[in-house]
């Protein structure tokens, strides 16, 4: 098995995730796309762990999963807060940074 088949698979997932983050308006869908990106990274970590026959790759993937759990928790809390204040989770409407 080529290492590249895993890496390119991960890269494709990553780009799809980026596309989702960039195009989706719905806050929950943006969060889902971010999960795609994180999973792509995890595949890379595990694949390199397998390539070098070292367990560190897997350990880092586990850490990433834990961080992702935290991220989803906080992210959903923010989305809920936006929803409560604006009755909408359209991230396009959250533009207080407009110059």
């Amino acid at each position: 098995m080529f290492i590249n088949q895993f890496l390119i698979f991960a890269a494709v997932l990553f780009c799809i995730g980026v596309y989702g983050v960039l195009t989706r308006k719905n806050g929950v869908l943006v969060l889902m796309s971010i999960e795609l990106i994180l999973n792509a990274v995890n595949i890379n970590l595990v694949a390199f762990g397998a390539l070098h026959q070292h367990v560190a790759g897997q350990v880092f993937a586990l850490f990433v999963i834990a961080v992702a759990a935290a991220e989803v928790g906080v992210g959903l809390a923010i989305v809920l807060l936006i929803y409560r204040n604006r009755r909408s989770i359209n991230v396009a409407e959250a533009n207080l940074l407009k110059g």
């Binding site: 980026v18 983050v21 960039l22 991230v91 396009a92 959250a94 533009n95 940074l97 407009k98 110059g99």
Partner: peptide, 16 residues
């Protein structure tokens, strides 16, 4: 100034 739309999406687009 046009770049500063306040749209996170646009900032992310620029970033990526």
């Amino acid at each position: 100034r046009g770049v500063q739309t306040g749209q996170i999406r646009q900032y992310a687009t620029l970033l990526f």
